[in-house]
Every structure is written in C-alpha cells, then in structure tokens.
Write a protein that binds this DNA or RNA. Structure first.
Ligand code: ZN
Ligand code: ZN
Ligand code: ZN
Ligand code: ZN
Lengths: 148, 148
DNA sequence: ATTATAATTGAGAAAGTTTCTCAATTGGGT
DNA sequence: ACCCAATTGAGAAACTTTCTCAATTATAAT
C-alpha cells in the first residue's frame, strides 16, 4: 500500500473543488483504491479495500462515490462481456482499457485510433458521433508467458 | 410486424442445429424480436415483445435465451455507459454498434478499424489482444435534424 | 406415426445488486 | 469556533438475475 494521499489524490482535490464537491476521506480513499489497483475490482472488492483505510465506510457510499468520480472524469466505467459494471482508474480523461482475461489485469491507454476513422463512419451512417466506448480483451505478457 | 420466421431465423435454425441446440419457438421469437428492432430494448421490452408472439414466455427463458444466442454469436451484448446489459441484433459475427443517445436507436456496422492498429498496440503493451469491445455513441440523423 | 430421451421451459423462490430514506455527521467558508 | 449545505452510514426497499424442479417439447430412432 503506497503513500496516501499521493499526487493523484491531491490533483483530485482540485477537481472536486472546481466542481463544488467536498473532498471527503471516502472519496479520496475510493480513488486511491482504484488508482492503486491494476486489476478489475468488483464493487465488493472496492468496499473491502476502502474499509481497510476507512473501516466504517458503507456500501451506499461506494456506489455514490463511484458515480461522482466517474461524473467528473477521474475514473471510467469498465464493462465486461459478462458480468459488467465496475470501474477502473483512468489516467487520462480519454482513457481506454485493455483487460487480461486470464488474470484480470487492467491497463489503460490514452492513445485512440479513431481520429480519422470516425469522420468516415459518421458520413456513412448519418450518426453524429459524440462518444465512443472501447475495450480490448486479451492476455497480458505474464499470463501469456506462464501459460503451458 | 414483419413475416415470421424470416430468412434470418431460418439461418438461425441451422446454427442452433450445428451446436446441438434445439430450435425452440422461444429462441426464434427472441431472435426475431431483436432482429426486428433497431432500438435498444431492455430485458422487459424483450419479454413484452416476445410475449406478443408467445404469450406464456417466462422471464427466466428470456435470460437463458439471450445467453444462448450470444454464445453462438447470433446476438451481441450491448453495454451502455449507464445502466447496461442488454442485447441487440448483430448482422455480422464481428459486429460493432452505434447507439443514438437521444432516441436509443442502434445500428450495427461490420467494418472494424483495428486490423492495423491492434498489431502495434499489442507490441507496445505486451498484451496479446484476443477480443475487443467497441461502441459508439452519438445522435442519429433524425434526432440531429429534429433538435432545435 | 409412435416412442424414448435429453433439452428446454414456466413459475416462483432465492440470491444478488442497486437505490432510497433519513437522522447524524462533517468539510469548508466565514 | 460557528454555520449550513453536502455527505455519510445503516438498513429498508426496489430491482435484477439466477436457481430449482416438475411439466413440456423438439428431435432422433424405431
Ligand atoms: Zn478513443
Ligand atoms: Zn455493461
Ligand atoms: Zn471490433
Ligand atoms: Zn475488429
């Protein structure tokens, strides 16, 4: 468990302040938990890890906090093909995720392949594309290496 | 309500047979409902529309059927940024979806922009990328036109 | 066409997940 | 230090998904 709060959480205080939201220990702790983790965390995982920092944290607060943090762009919702709905830290506001289906590791990557592509698709489909959601699934180098 | 069963549902019978699964009226009806709809349908929407064809259909059957149809690639799970977990018809086994955030229309498109891109990212991240999940959100031409 | 068999279904119970309510607490401005 | 609106914890309520099991049914073999 690294230093708490770290630089990222200090940034978060600024963002929360800008939005007129309070920097509560719960919000910083949840953010810290997600920031520290490179793996998929279920809601209960997040609750448990948050409780290690703040033992009285309630489940409703986790839900509310995840909503708030996603709203202001500090985290991004992660969907899984099956059994979705959790969050992972997002180092960039335009962050996509790549997920290891063996060990559940998550890596986020900021570069986005769509800048040209979307223009064309927009013309073809008639949709004015405003947002996109991309996730890659695969096997990380550790898992690929250790596999028989 | 178009002709039922249509060509797609007849194809589906073949696919089900190949996999050793029965072509039940429920499975064909759910597929028909999704095939016919261009919009996001909630589980209950799917149940309601299926009941118009087969009044006794149970909710558990909807869940089971959606799993089966997704498993064999006839439909694709659709995630929404908020409140996810439903399905839409997929005309191609490698189908991505584009969703109108105003009217909930869904259009699927088979072309995929990743063929070159993934090779590079694979090298950079060390992930062996096996699958990807992409959805675009925007506004369809009708909605964009009627907006004030 | 009849029969046999395993797969599938409907109904409701059970389990699991998310949201709501409200009194108590607390962060942050003054 | 004080105030007040925002936030929280706890549990209830609402909602969603899965499970169970007896009854039904699609398919293949006769
Ligand atoms: Zn992108
Ligand atoms: Zn989802
Ligand atoms: Zn794709
Ligand atoms: Zn592709």
């Amino acid at each position: 468990m690294s230093h708490f709060p770290c630089a990222k959480e200090i940034d978060a205080k600024e963002v929360l302040k800008e939005k007129g939201l309070k920097s509560t220990p719960q919000r910083l702790a949840v953010l810290h938990v997600l920031h520290e983790s490179t793996k998929y965390l279920s809601i209960n995982d997040i609750l448990d890890k948050t409780k290690e920092l703040l033992p009285n944290t309630g489940l409703a607060t986790i839900y509310r906090t995840l909503d708030v943090l996603a709203e202001i762009g500090l985290i991004t919702r992660v969907h899984f093909e099956d059994g979705c709905h959790t969050y992972a830290y997002s180092s960039d506001s335009h962050g996509h995720h790549i997920v290891c289906t063996t060990c559940n590791k998550i890596m986020d990557f900021a570069e986005c392949p769509f800048d040209d592509y979307l223009e064309n698709l927009s013309i073809k489909t008639g949709f004015k594309i405003k947002n996109h959601f991309l996730q890659l699934f695969g096997e990380c180098n550790e898992c690929a290496g250790s596999a028989s």
